[in-house]
């Protein structure tokens, strides 16, 4: 099991740096949509919730799994709708000047 632990650590560290780098130069005007977008992305917990409910053995596991799937679905669908609505507003504007906010 040790190699898996190390692999997980490597993955975690690389993912962390990716997360930092990807949004390092984000302009302030996108802070809120980006927070909302990343809020949607951690909705991937739905995958884990589905697997947990699908493999539930006991009534207790089934109930907790049901709760997990319901909560995660709210995270995913609510998070997506909020973000998409917010970003839709940017397109309603006129042609943007070249690369606004890049400083």
């Amino acid at each position: 099991m040790t190699p898996d632990l190390w692999a997980s650590l490597y993955i975690a560290i690389l993912a962390a740096f990716t997360g930092f780098e990807v949004i390092a130069r984000v302009p302030a005007l996108l802070h809120t949509p980006l927070m909302s977008g990343s809020n949607f992305i951690h909705g991937i917990v739905l995958v884990g919730a589905i697997l947990a409910l699908g493999r539930a053995q006991t009534p207790l596991e089934t109930s907790i799994g049901f709760l997990a799937v319901a909560l995660a679905s709210a995270n995913v669908l609510g998070g997506y709708a909020v973000t998409a609505r917010m970003l839709d507003m940017f397109e309603s504007g006129k042609k943007k000047p070249g690369a606004p906010g890049v400083r």
Binding site: A12, A16, T18, G19, F20, I23, V26, H31, I44, G48
Partner: peptide, 27 residues
């Protein structure tokens, strides 16, 4: 989400969770 992802052996959850954790911390 990342911790649970690694706990249940789901890399998609693990990596996405860490990604949001890092980006969210910076934000």
């Amino acid at each position: 989400v990342a911790a649970e992802g690694f706990a249940v052996g789901n890399a998609a959850m693990g990596v996405s969770g860490i990604l949001v954790g890092a980006a969210g911390t910076l934000l």
